[in-house]
Design a protein around this nucleic acid. Sequence first.
RNA 1: AGGGAAGUAGCUCAAUCGGCAGAGCAGGUGCCUUUGGAGCACAAGGUUAAAGGUUCGAGUCCUUUCUUCCCUGCCA
Length: 573
Amino acid sequence: MMDGDANRNFITDIINGHNESGRFDGRVHTRFPPEPNGYLHIGHAKSICLNFGLAAQYGGLCNLRFDDTNPAKEEQEYIDAITEDVRWLGYDWDDRLYFASDYFDELYEMALELVRIGRAYVDELSPEAIREYRGTLTEAGRESPYRNRPIEENLALFEKMRAGGFKEGEAVLRAKIDMANGNINLRDPVMYRILDAAHPRTGGKWKIYPMYDFAHGQSDSIEGITHSICTLEYEDHRPLYDWYLDNIEIFHPQQIEFARLNLSHTVLSKRKLIRLVQEGFVSGWDDPRMPTISGLRRRGYTPEAIREFCDDIGVGKVKGVVALHKLEFHQRQHLNKTADRVMAVINPLKVVIENYPDDLVEQMEAVNNPEDESAGTRLTPFSKVLYIERDDFMEAPPRKFYRLAPGREVRLRYAYFITCREVIKDENGEIIELRCEYDPATRGGSAPDGRRVKSTLHWVSARHAIEAEARLYDNLFTVENPEGDRDHDFTAFINPDSLNVVNPIYVEPHLRGARPGQRYQFERLAYFVVDEDSTADKQVFNRTVTLRDQWRKERKKAGKPRRKRRRKGAASR
RNA sequence: AGGGAAGUAGCUCAAUCGGCAGAGCAGGUGCCUUUGGAGCACAAGGUUAAAGGUUCGAGUCCUUUCUUCCCUGCCA
């Protein structure tokens, strides 16, 4: 992953160019600049990995800076959550935690300087009038009648703004650039506006607050940022970013724009995520179905997998949609190497081993993680009455169904070969129990005579199993692009089966005492994480991601989709 | 009187100075297996948005066209 060319992209090309020309003396210093007005999501992870990754790649630094210039929207709660999320993703900013609000004094001085040199003025046009004067995409704007007042008057008025002499909306400070410019950001952009709101950090000290454009570049400059990486929608802002820095005459970082992440089967805009929470489609920002960092964390996703994903999707200027499959792929890849295996039955079918002694209990040795020898082994109890997965038995098996069927022999993992002798049904014809026969010579799972079986089933001992709750999560949306339909709101595509609670499921006793956050593979089913809702009496397991399921594909190919009835509460998918 | 940007395999990205268009994922086929997982092998997938030009040679340079996206907050 770290070998030379792997991390090459258009941004490293730019950085390499700077290093050759000596523009930043070989320095690389980036920053991740969230606004504390919401929770971080997987799209932010891309930016975090990019900024911190680039710094690491070049032996540079990356700051965490909160862009807190709009107290009307920002809260301490978000600052805390964002800080936690970035740290959880595995990144460290040492002592370089900054806030744009740290620079309010300096920013004010810079604004004053622009007023003094005649490049900024106080405008008393109403917000509506300013909009009207700005012109349109195809027509030039007109100059404000206040545009050419004397410098001394602007100085006095700006002071009056600072001192609270104006109400919200009565006056703004504007840069004097070009009302006819094709780039609307250059038509005398607002630098400062009056906001009557308490700031989480500066309290009531300020009545005026800098706009993003006036704060961001200068904050970058103050921190010595060399490469200010942002998303594509800021391309039109770069000329303004440059204008402020050039006219204030301070250190000039390079703004670089990349395409933000779009993920299939989900939404990533803050506005839409808020609606999912507020309208009750999910339980909160950390609902395991949410694409937020906190949601992914609770779902069982690992920082390593998210970082690998970000590394894999790369960075460019082309807007595209990344398949959710890709995130899942990386998650399986990481959990496959690290998660302990355990046996759990989600949709139980009772199996009685007729020729097994009634009271005998044998402890079977099971491998915790075949990918990691150091994970060791455990003992798991075997007895006469077991549960297997209902899906692992078919009375009339189709071709390529290798699992248990009448008269067929299969292996119970780490235990014995068993053969199904009898199928017991209730009055409705529903299968309620299987009577089987085991071969004592096959203890541990292999036959001395060398005979083989085509499949291996997971199981739990009915007497010893712990009852737990499973929350089976699936995509929140049923379509790739929930926002792509003109006639329907994105909420119309919410997957009604995105959460399927199964209670109880049966897990092997080894799981007793597993703590929230611990991850396991339920063999042949999926990866699960212990949820924070777990109690001493009942553990809750969130399904992170299923295992790939070849049999499901076979079924699909055979054109025999499973019936709705059987799906309910079923283990697969 | 509009400005800015992007088009390479289904998806995400490569392709050095202009020199045989590649990889990962997905999908396909097969092998193997005490997870039908993991793993392995193989095949397939392309008029590089289009047209024209320069050149021995163009994804790359030039011209034109087409398509898509962003921009008219006192949000970021």
